[in-house]
Design a protein around this nucleic acid. Structure first.
Length: 615
RNA sequence: GCGCUCGUAGCUCAGCUGGAUAGAGCAUCGGACUUCGAAUCCGAGGGUCGGGAGUUCGAAUCUCUCCGAGCGCGCCA
C-alpha cells in the first residue's frame, strides 16, 4: 500500500482474521473441470470454424436434467448464425470433434442443437481427489488475476451504535470481500467515516451535555435535536475524567472540536467492537475530515474538474415532487453529471459556501483511484439508491473513464419480534442495536440468515424465529451437514480398526482412497456437486452475489443428508461405513471428507462457524 | 411528475448473466427411527413467472408499455 499519499490520513489496522490473503494461482490452464471442458469446446469450435469465431457467449453448464449427461454446451446454437450453418449441422460437427477429447465418454446432440457431454467415470473421482489434495484452497479462483478491488461497506455515521440494517450491509460487504479474495482479486476492505458533517457537531453537543452531567450538573431532559441515547454517558464521563471542568469555561467554538474528536473516536471504538463481534473487519478506515483538514483535497478535486469543464457555475430547475417553499433560485457550483448519464447536474457547495456531502464523496473516490483502484464496489443502504448515478458519473470523471464503480444496495431489514414490527430510530435512542441481536442469536445465525437472500430483497428478520433456532433456519441445516460428516468420522474411529483420530492423519489416509469404488448414483451426484464449487465461486464473485454461496451450501448439505438417509434398513449397502469392507468405507469417507471440506470452505467465506458437533 | 429497486406455488425465497419439462423451504396430506445424530429423509398436491407487446432457433431472464409495492428526488449524510 505504498501508493498512499502522505496527505491522506488513513488509519491502517492490522487484520486479526485468520483467513488467508495470499493469492495462490494455479498457473497455466483451466482451474476446474467446467473451465477445462469450455476450453475443449473452444478448441473444437476453432477446428470447425477457424480462429475468428466469437466464442464469448459459449457456455458449458450442468444440464437441468441429469439424464442429459454431465455437461451441456450451447456452442452450436450461439455460433450457428455467424458460421452460416444450421445449429444441428454445426452441433454434429462440433460433437465429432469433441468425441476425441480425453475426458469425454459420449457426446449427444439434442433439441435445437444442445451438445450433451457425458464424461468418463473416472473424471468425478479425479474431481473428488482434487478436493482432498487442495483442501482449504479448493475452489480458489484465478479470475481476479490479482487485480486490485476496493470494497467499501458499513460506513455508518459515527454518531451511535449500529442497528440491524447496518449489520446487513456489514455482513454483505464482508462476505463479498471474502468471496472476491477467494476468486483471486487483491481486495481492500474499506470504511468511510463521515466525521465532517453537521451530524458530528450534533454528536459533540450531545456529548458535551453528558459531560456536564458527569460533572454533577442536572441536565434535565435531552433537548430536541440532540442525541438522547445513553451510549453517550460514558463519553461524558471520559471527558470529565480527562479534562476536569476545563471545558465548562470555554466557548462552544473552543470546546466543540475537542469534544467532537473524543466522541467520534469513542463511537468508532464502539462500532469496531460491534463489527468485531460479527467477525467483520476492515483494512482501511478513511476519514472524511482528512479530505478538508490540511490540504483541501475537496477543493483541489473541484478545481481539477473545473479545468476539464465538468464543474461550472449554473442554475438548477426546482425539484419536481418536493416542497418548494424554501426553494431559492440561485447560481451555484455544479458537477456536470448529466454528461455521464445522470438526470440533473449536482451541486458541490452549500449556500453557506461549505462543501456538500457529494463534493467530499467525489474527492474520496478520487483518492481510491489515486491509490490504484480502478475496480470499486460500494455497499449502501437502499435509501441511497438515488445517489448511484451521480457517484458513478463522478468516478468516471475523476478517473478519465478508467475506473468503474459498482454499487450494491442492501435493502431494508424489517426487524420483527413475535411478528410485530420493532421501531428503529437513532434519534430517539430507542432502538434494538445490532449488538443486542448478535448477543441473542449468535453471529453465525445472523450472518447466514442475512446472506441467504439477495441483497436487493427486503429482509424480514424475526427475532423470535431466530432465537427459536428452529429447523426453518437454514444455517442449522448446513451446519448440521458439516457436523454430521464429522460424526461419521468419529464413528469410523470406533468401528474401523486403525482409522486415524487426528485430522491430518485422516486426510492422508483418505487421499489414498480408491474413489473408483464410488459408483452409486447419489455418490456421483455429490461428486458432481463438489466439482461445481469452483465454477460457482467464479460466477458469484463475478456477479458480486455472495448469496449464491449460501444457496450452494444448502444444496450440497441437502444432497449429503439425502445420501445419508438412503443408507437405511432398506439399503444398508449404501451406508458410509461398511463393517466388512474397509476399502469401500474409506472411499466413502473420502467423499464425506470432500463434502466437509467444501462446506467448511463456503461457510468460512460467509463468516459462519462450521462446528464439528451440534450439541 | 421523474429516477432507482422489486413483483415467481397459500407464505418466505432460489432460478447458475438468454437454454431443454420453472425449483427449494414453510404450511397441508401420506410415509420412514433395533441407522454412522430423525435438528434428518422419501412421496403427493399446489404456477397464465403482475398484464400486454416486441427482439430470436429459444425469454422468468433482454427492450418497450401499462398495473402494483418500497425507496429517493438543491443547500441531510
Amino acid at each position: 500500500m505504498t501508493g498512499l499519499g502522505a496527505k491522506i490520513v488513513v488509519i491502517l489496522t492490522p487484520r486479526t482474521m485468520t483467513g488467508t490473503r495470499s493469492l495462490i494461482m494455479t498457473s497455466g490452464s483451466a482451474s476446474h473441470l467446467f473451465a477445462t471442458m469450455l476450453a475443449s469446446v473452444h478448441t473444437a469450435a476453432g477446428a470447425v470454424l477457424g480462429g475468428s469465431a466469437d466464442l464469448s457467449r459459449v457456455v458449458v453448464e450442468p444440464p437441468r436434467d441429469p439424464t442429459h449427461g454431465d455437461m451441456a454446451t450451447n456452442a452450436a446454437m450461439v455460433l450457428a448464425k455467424d458460421a452460416g450453418k444450421k445449429p444441428r449441422e454445426l452441433a454434429d460437427a462440433l460433437a465429432e470433434a469433441l468425441r476425441a477429447d480425453a475426458l469425454v465418454e459420449k457426446v449427444d446432440v439434442a433439441g435445437p442443437g444442445f451438445i450433451n457431454l457425458t464424461l468418463k467415470a473416472h473424471v468425478w473421482g479425479d474431481a473428488l481427489r482434487a478436493v482432498l489434495a487442495t483442501g482449504n484452497e479448493y475452489g480458489r479462483g484465478t479470475i481476479g488475476a490479482g487485480q486490485k478491488v476496493n470494497v467499501e461497506y458499513v460506513s455508518a455515521n459515527p454518531t451511535g451504535p449500529m442497528h440491524v440494517g447496518h449489520g446487513r450491509g456489514a455482513v454483505f460487504g464482508d462476505a463479498l470481500a471474502s468471496l472476491l479474495d477467494f476468486a483471486g482479486f487483491d481486495v481492500t476492505r474499506e470504511y468511510y467515516i463521515n466525521d465532517a458533517g453537521a451530524q458530528v457537531d450534533v454528536l459533540a453537543r450531545s456529548a458535551y451535555l453528558r459531560y456536564r452531567e458527569a460533572l454533577g450538573e442536572d441536565i434535565g431532559a435531552i433537548p430536541e435535536g440532540l442525541y438522547p441515547g445513553d451510549y453517550l454517558v460514558p463519553v461524558g464521563k471520559k471527558l470529565a475524567e480527562e479534562q476536569g471542568d476545563k471545558l465548562r469555561a470555554m466557548s462552544e467554538a473552543e470546546w466543540l472540536p475537542l469534544v467532537r474528536a473524543k466522541a467520534i473516536a469513542m463511537m468508532m471504538d464502539m462500532i469496531r467492537e460491534d463489527l468485531a463481534q460479527l467477525n467483520v473487519h476492515h483494512d482501511v478506515f478513511f476519514s472524511e475530515r482528512s479530505l478538508i483538514e490540511g490540504a483541501d483535497q475537496v477543493g483541489g478535486t473541484i478545481a481539477t474538474l473545473r479545468k476539464s469543464g465538468e464543474v461550472y457555475e449554473g442554475r438548477l430547475p426546482p425539484p419536481k415532487g418536493g416542497n418548494l417553499e424554501d426553494w431559492e433560485d440561485r447560481e451555484q457550483t455544479l458537477f456536470r453529471s448529466t454528461a455521464f448519464g445522470d438526470d440533473v447536474d449536482r451541486p458541490l457547495l452549500k449556500s453557506d459556501g461549505s462543501y456538500t456531502y457529494f463534493a467530499s464523496d467525489i474527492a474520496y473516490h478520487k483518492s481510491k483511484y489515486d491509490r490504484g483502484f480502478t475496480d470499486m464496489i460500494d455497499v449502501w443502504g437502499a435509501d441511497h439508491g438515488g445517489y448511484i448515478k451521480r457517484m458513478q458519473a463522478a468516478v468516471k470523471a475523476v478517473s478519465g473513464g478508467k475506473a468503474a464503480l459498482d454499487v450494491k444496495l442492501v435493502q431494508l431489514v424489517r426487524l420483527l419480534r413475535n411478528g410485530e414490527p420493532v421501531k428503529m430510530s437513532k434519534r430517539s435512542g430507542d432502538f434494538v442495536t445490532l449488538r443486542e441481536v448478535v448477543d441473542e442469536v449468535g453471529r453465525s445465525a445472523v450472518r447466514f440468515d442475512m446472506l441467504y437472500r439477495k441483497n436487493d430483497a427486503v429482509l424480514d428478520f424475526d427475532l423470535t424465529k431466530v432465537i427459536e433456532q428452529s429447523r426453518e433456519n437454514p444455517v442449522f441445516y448446513v451446519q448440521y451437514g458439516h457436523a454430521r460428516g464429522h460424526s461419521i468420522f468419529r464413528t469410523a474411529q470406533n468401528e474401523i480398526a486403525g482409522f486415524p483420530t487426528d485430522a491430518a492423519a485422516r486426510l492422508e489416509r483418505l487421499k489414498n482412497a480408491k474413489v473408483e469404488l464410488l459408483t452409486d448414483e447419489g455418490e456421483f451426484s455429490i461428486m458432481r456437486k463438489l466439482a461445481l464449487y469452483p465454477r460457482m465461486i467464479e460466477a458469484a464473485a463475478t456477479a458480486h452475489e455472495p448469496h449464491r454461496v449460501a444457496f450452494y451450501l444448502y444444496e450440497l448439505a441437502s444432497e449429503f443428508h439425502s445420501q445419508w438417509s438412503r443408507g437405511g434398513k432398506e439399503s444398508p449397502h449404501l451406508r458410509f461405513i461398511i463393517q466388512n469392507d474397509p476399502e469401500k468405507t474409506v472411499a466413502r469417507l473420502a467423499l464425506v471428507q470432500g463434502i466437509v471440506t467444501v462446506l467448511a470452505s463456503g461457510l468460512a467465506l460467509l463468516g459462519v462457524d462450521a462446528p464439528e458437533e451440534m450439541r
